[in-house]
Computed example of a mutant assay.
Amino acid sequence: MAQDEKTVSDISTLLDYYDTSRNPGPKPEVGQIVFTPVLNTDRKHMIADAQRSDPNSHTRADLIIRAIDDSSDFRGKPERLPIYAMCLGQTEELVITRAKKRPCVVLAKSDGVKHMTLPVGQQGKALNAFDEIYWLAPIYSVSTGSKARAFGPVMTARVKCMMYMEFVYVPQSGLIIRNPSVIRLDRMFWSHLLGASEPQSLFLTPEILGICWNQIRILSGDTPEEDYVSMRELLLMDLPEECK
């Protein structure tokens, strides 16, 4: 924190964002950037109402796309013929949403539980129940001169100065993070990273991960570290008047 307050414009003047000393291992690690599908969560999902198109076939179905019906969906449809190719039970529904492959940062990981370590009679149910899984925060690009996005100039300036607890700014980095971007802690999710996922040779520094975790602490109602509070106060003091 030795820098003159007058020179401080955003967090990049205080901390390094990317850890150039780390190399990818055989599996994704905490702090690593991974490209993976991210589900859209901005609106109410749709239901794909599945009905067998052939009463004698379990591999063909007609899908009727409609809004969720709170009075009937997920409440059991005993009249619905089972569709074994979908493994769709009477109280289950097919939920439709859009997805886009985005860079995400790995915030945490669980190595899972190996089913063979359990008693023989319990191994079957645990076979696919406790696989390794990763806690991810997706990264969204900010507006550029050629393309407007939700994170416009004012929002981006505020995020750079840590105004919002659910957002953390990250700068462009080669062809991986292609534009200045924002880590969205309000879109965190768990994933097994089993399909269409690509770990990248790019890692956040422990300091930037620390900012993420301090903001998660605040979002969970906990108290952040004093160094984080001091840094945030310093940056907000330097936020341009037109962005406050």
Rank of each mutant, 00 (worst) to 15 (best):
S146F: 12
V182G: 02
V113K: 13
A108D: 12
D186R: 02
I139K: 00
A148Q: 14
D111N: 11
P119C: 10
S143D: 04
K125H: 12
M155Y: 11
H115F: 11
Y164H: 11
I176M: 05
I183L: 04
G174C: 04
K160Y: 00
C87P: 06
I177W: 02
V106S: 00
S173Q: 11
A99S: 13
Q122I: 04
K100I: 07
G145I: 14
M165V: 01
I133F: 00
K77E: 13
P138C: 08
P180N: 11
Y134S: 00
L136A: 00
K114Q: 13
S146Q: 14
I83Q: 05
A129C: 05
E79C: 01
Q172T: 10
S173L: 07
E92C: 07
C161H: 04
V182C: 09
G174F: 00
P138R: 04
L88E: 03
R80M: 04
V182I: 14
S181R: 07
P153E: 11
P180S: 05
L127I: 15
A108F: 05
A196Q: 11
M188W: 00
P180D: 12
K77F: 09
Y164I: 02
A129I: 02
I139N: 01
A99N: 08
K101V: 08
L88F: 02
P119E: 13
T117H: 13
Y84I: 08
L175N: 14
R184Q: 11
I96H: 13
S181P: 07
V106L: 07
R187I: 01
I183C: 02
M86V: 10
V170R: 00
L193E: 02
R98Q: 09
I83E: 04
R158H: 02
A150F: 15
M165Q: 08
E93I: 04
K147L: 12
Q122G: 09
M165I: 06
L94S: 06
A126W: 05
H115D: 12
P78M: 07
C161D: 01
P78I: 05
L127Y: 15
G152R: 12
G89K: 06
H192F: 06
F74S: 08
L175T: 14
G195N: 12
S146H: 15
V170W: 00
L185A: 02
L88T: 04
P78G: 06
G195L: 08
A85N: 10
K114M: 08
Y140M: 15
I96C: 13
D131E: 14
V113N: 09
V113G: 10
G121M: 14
I177C: 06
T91H: 12
Y134E: 01
A150Q: 13
E93F: 03
D111T: 11
M188L: 03
P171Q: 04
Q172R: 12
L118H: 03
A126P: 10
I83P: 02
Y84P: 01
P78D: 10
Y169T: 00
C161E: 01
A129F: 03
